[in-house]
Design a protein around this nucleic acid. Structure first.
Lengths: 185, 185
DNA sequence: GTCTATAATTTGATAGAC
DNA sequence: GTCTATCAAATTATAGAC
């Protein structure tokens, strides 16, 4: 059973968007990537905004599926944050690209509002997930503060590491970030 | 004495690029922003790449001028990092936009290499500056590790805070980041 | 679902007059 | 330095046949 056209279109679009942003994806590029005509692409995604929304939805879903799987056997906060880090790390090392929502978040001001909402939800869910892994000894406020810093750090270092030869930066920095997050209670 | 055309073009281009990215800036937009014709824009910047390079150069220069001024009377590491934070903070709160190099860094894969190099230099210089403010008691390796995490955190939280209503996120997170950076020696 | 054909607009860029 | 005029290519999108 081979991949259906909609999936192949989303794959091609994600590849391009995670490298050049929203405006770096055109219907004709996707058409040639999947070897159909651009008018056929419009059958699957009538407007570009529809494509963008579908991309963000799929990305978010897959992210949390992967995260849940990675954290399945994690018990300590350290292990759970290690799982979180691993999902970001794989997205960077295997796809050799930044986070879709990180890139779109930077371009936010120029995006249709449906996309902006999706990006927002992705970050909120990231922070919620991390906050809930932190030790119960911390206040809710403190958990959210540290979770926000950890997510921001992952987004920032993913972008920086991707934009240079030395990808090892990601490992070094996220290692420190986790240590800092779990530091003095 | 009023602002010359080149400067007004750079201002308009920076405004647009810091909101929608490289592809969100067109010669015709800049022409209408500055009330000249698009062919005249090409007189100032023959190719779009020339415009991009000039933007990054000006942005980097201004960033470090502002940073040096802000840190002029700072003596302790904490005060110096406070100055660094303030420059990022003002760029976010006053311009209501993300860092030009942060956005272009995310789009890196789709940019002309001259732009990629400029973005790279901006981050390297950021990390160098921060590393040199840290206590001499730390090893060079440790300084660079912490400096990279601090810069990444600033970039990440700037993007996240800009993409939501609640801009206070920036203050909360950068406060924590600085504390963590100066934590246990 | 995919195609041909096409429309309407935008884009980066150039030639040459003033 | 700025203009008019223009170009070739790219872009989002639609109508209608198969």
């Amino acid at each position: 059973m081979q991949t259906d056209t909609t999936t192949r279109l989303l794959d091609a679009a994600e590849y391009r968007m995670r490298r050049g942003g929203y405006n770096a994806v055109s219907f004709r590029d996707l058409a040639s990537d999947t070897e159909i005509k651009s008018s056929s692409v419009h059958y699957h995604f009538p407007k570009k905004e529809d494509l963008g929304v579908a991309l963000i939805d799929r990305y978010t879903e897959r992210f949390f599926d992967t995260l849940r799987a990675a954290a399945q056997n994690a018990t300590t906060p350290k292990e759970k944050l290690g799982a979180f880090r691993k999902v970001y790390r794989d997205a960077l090392y295997e796809d050799k690209a930044v986070c879709l929502c990180g890139l779109l978040g930077a371009e936010m001001a120029g995006l249709p509002s449906a996309l902006a909402d999706g990006v927002q939800s992705f970050f909120d869910a990231n922070i919620d997930w991390v906050a809930n892994t932190l030790p119960e000894t911390l206040s809710k406020t403190e958990k959210y503060k540290r979770a926000s810093a950890l997510v921001a750090g992952h987004q920032g270092v993913m972008m920086m590491a991707n934009s240079r030869k030395d990808k090892k930066l990601f490992d070094t920095v996220t290692d420190l970030l986790i240590t800092q997050t779990l530091g003095q209670n």
